[in-house]
Design a binder for these strands. Structure first.
Lengths: 178, 178
DNA sequence: GCCGCGCTTGACCGCTCGGTCAATGTTCAC
DNA sequence: GTGAACATTGACCGAGCGGTCAAGCGCGGC
């Protein structure tokens, strides 16, 4: 059912009407409002489900790895591979971040993810493996790299996810100067 | 005139009607369509103008600096300080990237900016100052860090732009492990 | 056979939107 | 003073939207 919402990704939320969605599915409009209270709820549901799935993937990827630096690396790789398999969601999430209706949900999701990263960073800093800089800003920096490289990897599919992930990790750990 | 378009930033493009804009300005609807062919053109014009202004700022900041690494640093700082002074535009640009109507314009703008960064990166690589990795991906990584830290700095105003810029540069050059 | 009900339909409603335009005010040059 | 060009108004339009709902369908229980 929610598969019919790849339309949001292709054409954007506002330009996609409920009529478009049900027409693509070949069903009447009523069936949509039988399962969702509103068009808004569909997007919210999409956001919740995708976030839940992504986090599950990350937690599974981290396993019981103890090294904080390695945990960060695994988190990055998990994010990239998840988005590679769910390309539609990238555009959806990016739009949702710009709409005041959905921004709060998304902000909460991201805060949780950032908080996780911050924890690993702090661990790494007390271990002396990570330079002692504001962990919050570092966490955002990492998320920025991941988001942008995800976006780029989705467009330029000539690169494999692993290649991108390798560079992403290298950049985050060693910077430009290596 | 275009100042009335901070509404786009506050409420988003689609939720802001032309009627809202002219009401805020206290003028009739006709005056809007005297200056702009359509609502769409207003956003396009906004994007063009902001991109032009940002690039001007960057070129001015770079001056005649020869060191490629330093040029990258100055570019980063220029971006951050420009967005700090034009907060409204961040949300607008972020939205425009998700809308298929405006994405092409924005993509071109960004490609130019990325191309600049790539040039500096290549210079740095032949100098041996920058690790020999795919310059395109590195450029996107840098832009990702800048975008995310910009976004975060706009929300959390407790940090000065310079503090954020310092960390941003440090992260890009040295990574987490410094 | 027939009822009840979960599910589905699509015509329809009210509303808001982007965009138009005849009418009118304002400002010059001459 | 007068008229042409400029600038502005806001009522109005058709389109398309999100959302509703009376009517119908199919199917299992009795």
């Amino acid at each position: 059912m929610e598969c019919g919402a790849r339309l949001f990704a292709e054409r954007g939320y506002h330009p996609t009407s409920v009529a478009d969605i049900v027409a693509t599915l070949g069903v009447g409009k009523g069936v949509f409002y039988w399962y969702f209270a509103s068009k808004e709820e569909l997007l919210t549901e999409l956001l919740k489900a995708s976030n839940h799935d992504l986090r599950k993937r990350q937690q599974h990827a981290l396993g019981d790895e103890a090294d904080p630096v390695r945990r960060i690396e695994l988190g990055i790789r998990a994010s990239l591979s998840w988005f590679a398999e769910h390309r539609e969601y990238f555009a959806i999430i990016q739009f949702a971040a710009t709409d005041e209706t959905f921004a709060p949900v998304l902000a909460r999701n991201r805060e949780i993810s950032i908080a996780d990263t911050i924890r690993h960073l702090k661990d790494g800093i007390v271990d002396g493996r990570i330079a002692d800089r504001d962990p919050t800003l570092l966490a955002h920096a990492i998320h920025g790299v991941v988001a942008e490289l995800t976006s780029h990897a989705l467009v330029d599919s000539s690169l494999s996810v692993d290649e991108v992930a390798d560079l992403c990790v290298a950049f985050c750990l060693e910077g430009l100067c290596g």
